[in-house]
Write a protein that binds this DNA or RNA. Structure first.
Length: 156
DNA sequence: GCCAACGTTGGC
DNA sequence: GCCAACGTTGGC
């Protein structure tokens, strides 16, 4: 399987790319996804080594702000079993987990964040899931989209 | 902070 | 299985 590409959304107030850069080993568990379609992608599709566009949603401005790498494939989200967590799910059990996570590692912060506005204005990016189905928080990205966004981001 | 879009729940 | 009610996301 060749390397694939994904876009992951996070609100910077909750967990920004700077938080990822400062995290231990510059890694994090991508916890808290509570949408079935996104869950299926995390559980079944994201592979070690895949590229991640890190997107800040609910931000000023909302933008792709850098990149990360998948470093561990899907496994049950520990937070669903944690009664004290905001992400606790009473219907989930260790035998029958409902939600999944991957681990990602920091890769780069763009010199120039690629804003949603720019993405909408760029014809070659107009088919991105981000534009078409804006609410999905884990999305596939094509290789062409990946390359163009990295170019627009101007490196790290 | 508003609210449109969209996903989920649950009664029937 | 339909669909109204409700909750959440996320751009603006």
């Amino acid at each position: 399987m060749p390397r694939r590409y994904w876009l992951l959304k996070s609100e910077p107030d909750v967990f920004s790319i700077d938080d990822l850069k400062k995290a231990p080993s510059q890694r994090t568990v991508w916890e808290g996804v509570r949408n079935y379609q996104a869950r299926n992608l995390l559980r079944d599709e994201l592979q070690k080594g895949d590229g991640v566009l890190y997107y800040h949603s609910n931000a000023k401005p909302s933008a792709v702000v850098g990149t990360a790498t998948v470093v561990r494939t899907g496994y049950p989200d520990p937070a669903q079993f944690d009664k004290k967590s905001d992400y606790h799910d009473a219907a989930a059990t260790e035998e029958n987990p409902r939600w999944y996570v991957v681990d990602i590692a920091f890769e780069s912060i763009f010199k120039h964040p690629v804003s949603l506005e720019t993405i909408k204005e760029t014809r070659a990016l107009s088919e991105m899931v981000l534009v078409k189905r804006s609410r999905l928080s884990v999305q596939p990205v094509t290789e062409a989209e990946w390359k163009l966004i990295l170019r627009l981001g101007g490196g790290s």
